[in-house]
């Protein structure tokens, strides 16, 4: 069977899970891989659960829709875990054996004894890093949280190359109209207004991604 990686991104509306998924899929495509990307959200807007699904493979991908059995889970906000703001409970439901979890947080997520045991049986790995803090400190805006999350993903999995992600980012913000949803388009303009120049935006975003590496911590069960 061909190697396929299924990545489930759970966050809150406005955090950029849709954009992060797009950039990741686009980077994978640039690296010569096959990818499908789809966002899933309710009619709610900011701070409501938002999920995106990215499948990356060396071969044609047929499967559609939400990823029920992910290899990688990315949690963009601690509330996804603590307040159950995701489409599956617990947040790691369906995680495949040997799967990875990347959590945005200044401290390790609180897990119950049952959850620790379940994750241990799965031989899962759990990493956390302060993505929002890095976005603010390095990028100057919490809207770059998704960039930090992507940076963490690349650092840990090497699923896409740094040149691939750089090009994908340039395509996403460097012009050309992109529409994932009307709300995402509106947020784009808000983000662009924070930077005088697109090039500055790209540089800042890359800087945020690359700043993640040294801050990654692993939780052992």
């Amino acid at each position: 069977m061909t190697k396929k990686t299924s990545i489930r991104m759970s966050g809150l509306g406005g955090q950029g899970v849709v954009t992060a998924a797009h950039i990741l899929g686009s980077a994978a495509t640039r690296d010569g891989l096959v990818s499908t990307v789809n966002p899933f959200f309710g009619a709610e807007k900011r701070l409501a659960p938002a999920e995106s699904y990215v499948r990356v493979s060396s071969d044609r991908i047929f499967e559609r829709g939400e990823i029920l059995f992910p290899n990688v889970i990315m949690i963009f906000h601690p509330h996804v875990i603590s307040l159950g703001k995701c489409y599956t409970m617990p947040f790691f439901a369906g995680l495949q054996p040997g799967g990875l979890m990347l959590v945005n947080g200044d401290s390790a997520p609180e897990l119950s004894q049952d959850e620790r045991e379940a994750l241990k049986r799965l031989d899962a790995k759990l990493y956390y890093f302060p993505a929002t803090k890095l976005a603010l400190e390095v990028g100057g805006t919490d809207l770059a949280t998704n960039m930090a999350m992507l940076g963490g993903l690349i650092e840990i999995t090497h699923i896409v190359s740094w040149p691939g992600i750089t090009d994908a980012l340039a395509e996403r913000f460097g012009g050309g109209k992109f529409v994932a949803s009307a709300t995402t388009a509106a947020l784009d303009d808000a983000l662009k207004s924070k930077y005088e120049k697109i090039s500055q935006l790209l540089e800042q975003n890359m800087a945020v991604m690359q700043a993640v590496g040294p801050t990654i911590k692993e939780v052992t069960f």
Binding site: V37, N38, R64
Partner: peptide, 12 residues
């Protein structure tokens, strides 16, 4: 076409 699965899914 099926909503979201086709409309919102990014593919080649």
């Amino acid at each position: 076409a099926d909503g979201f699965f086709v409309t919102h899914t990014r593919d080649k």
